[in-house]
């Protein structure tokens, strides 16, 4: 019986294609990681293992530039992700737990709008907007632009989590004399914590990684890590770029793993 089921699920060739897929996805990254340890000035010849490029990243000529860029990226991401998470939590409560209200279907379209507009269009539109109202391009414009596209990304795990929570808990709370604010604070919010954390982490990474929109709205004075890297790459791929890439790569992986386990944490509780 079990083998029959296995048969129906198996298709010849699917497994090799999956492995090919994984290979295609990881090969470039692994290669970059390996070459970031390349002890050679040329990026094409392998010269042995070395940490010199990592050293160069932290202490070399361009280090201050990258350090500032990293600082900007992280702080912008923190601000944008926090704002987006708060807004998304409120929005999810409205969409999933507040019955009917005027503009509800329009709201759904609105929340998803940043995902549907191509990034380059958003970038151009935002640049034009700030230019038209005379708002100087810089740190603040980046944060504002980031909050916009972080909202749907924070919204997704939050809404998914909220939908999975039966509203009998909130009914029971009200049955036991809790006001709606108490119900939200004592029952819904704690149960949603994994989703909210997941949403925050997602928004954080999205903001950290953004290039196109940031590049358009940043003006001349500010660099974030992606824009700094891009600027450097324009002049040719140098080994220190690969070191930075590897570092950034590792940070992303750590964050994703964290987000995954945070999400799983919530499942165990239920």
């Amino acid at each position: 019986m079990a083998s029959k089921n296995l048969d129906l699920r198996r298709f010849p060739g699917f497994l090799p294609l999956t492995y090919l897929c994984l290979f295609l996805l990881y090969a470039p990254l692994i290669v970059v990681m390996i070459y970031s340890f390349n002890d050679s000035n040329s990026i094409t010849r392998w010269g042995g293992m070395s940490l010199r490029w990592y050293h160069e990243v932290f202490y070399g000529v361009e280090a201050p530039k990258f350090r500032t860029a990293t600082f900007n990226s992280v702080t912008i991401a923190l601000l944008a992700a926090t704002s987006a998470t708060i807004i998304a939590t409120m929005a999810a409560t409205a969409m999933l737990r507040a019955g009917k209200f005027r503009g509800k279907s329009a709201s759904f379209a609105l929340i998803n709008l940043p995902l549907m507009v191509p990034e380059i269009v958003t970038a151009v539109a935002t640049l034009i907007f700030f230019s038209a109202i005379g708002f100087k391009a810089g740190y603040l414009t980046i944060v504002l632009a980031h909050v916009v596209f972080c909202i749907p990304f924070a919204y997704l795990p939050i809404a998914a989590r909220m939908q999975g929570i039966e509203d009998t808990f909130e009914q029971a709370a009200q049955d036991l004399y809790a006001t709606r604010f108490q119900t939200f604070r004592l029952i819904l919010l704690p149960l949603m914590t994994p989703g909210i954390l997941s949403g925050f982490l997602l928004a954080f990474i999205i903001s950290l990684d953004d290039f196109i929109i940031t590049n358009f709205v940043k003006g001349a004075g500010v660099e974030t890590l992606p824009t700094a890297i891009y600027g450097a790459v324009r002049q040719g791929i140098k080994p220190n770029i690969m070191a930075i890439s590897t570092l950034l790569l590792s940070v992303s992986v750590v964050f994703v793993t964290l987000s995954y386990f945070v999400g799983r944490m919530g499942d165990k509780k239920q």
Binding site: T93, A94, M95, R97, A98, F101, G103
Partner: peptide, 12 residues
């Protein structure tokens, strides 16, 4: 699913 009915608009 209207535990917070009436608060929809301020929340959104």
């Amino acid at each position: 699913t209207s535990t917070y009915a009436g608060f929809g608009i301020p929340l959104i």
